[in-house]
Amino acid sequence: MVFRRALRYGLLIAFAVVFIYPFLLSLGTSFKSRPEVATSSVSPWPRSFDLRAWTDVLVHSDFPLWTFNSIVVTVAATLGRVFIDSLAGYALARLNFRGRGVLFAGIISVLAVPPIVLTVPRFLVLKELSLLNSYTGLILPLAVDAMGIFLMRQFFVELPRELEEAARIDGASIFQAYWHVVLPLARPALLTLTILSFQGVWNEFLMPLIVVRASPSHWTLPFGLSTLGRGGAGGQSFDYPVMMAGSILTIIPVAIVFVIFQRYFVRSVASSGVKG
């Protein structure tokens, strides 16, 4: 028994190192000088703190601009998702109207379309709407998300009906009951949706690549990051400290949200796992 327990903890600690050490190493590397990186690439502790990479990223690149763009796009797309998904989820779960079944089936089938298949199609539509190289073109497609509608519907299906029916009997309109009674009860689900959306949009790479590639003033963090520290071809001339500083800065906001709201992340994955 003692042996088995030692084995178990050994395994867990080994994997924890495998999953966490790369982040610590990249943090440490961002404070190293390039010559030091060339000779010492394993220790997370820099021999002397060199702030060159950080000033390169924060002062001599467009990183602040990319961060600003990312915040704009993430906030706008997330607000859009929360608004659209909660309304639609509520209608699908609670309101009786003709066509509901068809709409729900439609949303499930849209959910099954792999995003990569949408690369060319979305470019086409945004081009036809003259929305390429604009915030709007970046935000609108990300604000629509079938997964969120599905999540909200599942939540509303399980919510007890009594309170909103009481409100309706007291004379509230459907929208008033929704706004004043249902939404406050839906806070946990809305928070989950917000967090998932924040994480997804913040990390989104494909959309900025297709939509704003030609307009550097609209680049978001992941796309801007992908251009950092890559002097010349062949991989020998990568500026690792700069790449690591940029990576760490891009990860930090999600890491903070993740640590604070960990259980919401876990719950959302777990529920998708159970309900499948």
Binding site: L12, F15, A16, F19, I20, P22, F23, L25, S26, T29, A38, T39, S41, Q199, W202, N203, F205, L221, P222, F223, L225, S226, G229, G235, F238, Y240, M243, M244, G246, S247, I248, T250, I251, V254, A255, F258, V259, Q262, F265, V266, V269
Partner: peptide
């Protein structure tokens, strides 16, 4: 442990790719 194992899943694909370029570099 659960947090440590799950954390890489929520991070930016590009940032993580950069970290792995470094891990897999010749030195």
């Amino acid at each position: 442990f659960r947090t440590a194992f799950y954390f890489p899943s929520v991070t930016s694909s590009i940032a993580v790719a950069f970290i792995f370029i470094f891990l897999f570099s010749p030195t």
